[in-house]
Write a protein that binds this DNA or RNA. Structure first.
Lengths: 190, 190
DNA sequence: ACCTGAACACCGTTCAAGT
DNA sequence: ACCTGAACACCGTTCAAGT
């Protein structure tokens, strides 16, 4: 026995993290395993399926111990942000089975079906745009590597950590949706 | 003068609508214009830019007369759903300039910056998953073309129009977010 | 069961050259 | 300004054949 399905998925996730979604080709995954591209098709019917398995792996265990929707969404976001282009992979795979995914079912127990869908779409979308921006910033830093020594007059307010900004922005959107959910189904106080 | 930039964008949108995003290659757009693939690079630096221009075209004019966020989002969704894979194209292009897009600015006037971002991410995500499902359903209908004559016993409740379901689902999510926005910044009654 | 080798039908992009 | 022709470095997938 040379390679198993989970070897393939693990290799694909390594390639994804190293090269991004665009560079995550079947041929590169095969190379990562020191195997011909055609060998992958023994384990997986096509690339789309492989991407779905990678998405499952990325979100594995998310929200298993979460007791409220907010905690759940933050965990999900962290899991997606932990691997390069993870949000894209998860969101695309999830779109194919919205209404049938495990995470959606789990979140629905905390927030109801409509709440779960709304929170998930928001969380996916925000994570995707976060990763797009982080990526663009990294590229910009590469193209202009020197630190901006000139306009360093304004000391502390001038350098807003973009990651922290995005975290805060995510939290505020979450607050809005959760407030809306509370308005629709006010906390039971039996 | 043979072809202008807008000819290229228009041709690309025709190819998109006919073949979907996956089939919308530079080579096919060129063929649509009866031109060599390399000719496109006289009008556009790369495919990504062409996709951004297509996205601009798809959302052109959306929400210009909208007086409330709900109307705005419904209009935006309709515009994206009007062309095959339109939501994907718009969402991907928008992710690259979240915080700097025209639609976001316009919606921010109605719902504030956080509200606009939350509503947009939700609207993009829901439209994307809607189109994914419509597409999958169309494919399923192709693979099983005969009408289900056997289990036609239950007359009216059994056949829930999936498009109507998705419309309703979108509306409920919108209601949740708008209720949350109202809770955060209650309607001014001067 | 797992893999090789070779092939098929594609991609996006570049570049010199034409008009 | 707009386009051709040819090339480069890739893709995903299939399939017979090997072990």
């Amino acid at each position: 026995m040379r390679n198993s399905l989970s070897d393939v998925v693990a290799a694909a996730l390594r390639v994804l993290d190293a090269q991004g979604l665009e560079g995550c080709s079947m041929r590169r995954v095969a190379a990562q395993l020191d195997v011909q591209p055609s060998a992958l098709y023994h384990h997986v019917p096509d690339k789309q399926t492989l991407l779905a398995l990678m998405a499952d792996d990325i979100v594995r265990g998310v929200g298993e111990s979460a007791r409220e929707p907010r905690e759940f969404c933050v965990e999900l976001r962290d899991a997606m942000l932990a691997v390069r282009d993870g949000a894209d992979v998860v969101a695309t795979a999830a779109a194919f089975r919205l209404g049938a995914s495990q995470i959606e079912d789990r979140l629905a127990e905390l927030a109801g079906p409509d709440g779960a869908r709304t929170l998930l779409l928001y969380t996916f979308g925000h994570a995707q745009s976060t990763q797009t921006h982080v990526q663009a910033a990294a590229l910009g830093a590469l193209l202009a590597p020197a630190r901006p020594a000139i306009s360093a007059a304004a000391p502390s307010t001038a350098a807003p950590d973009p990651a922290a900004d995005l975290d805060a922005s995510f939290g505020r959107g979450l607050d809005i949706i959760l407030a809306g959910l509370a308005a629709f189904a006010p906390t039971r106080r039996d």
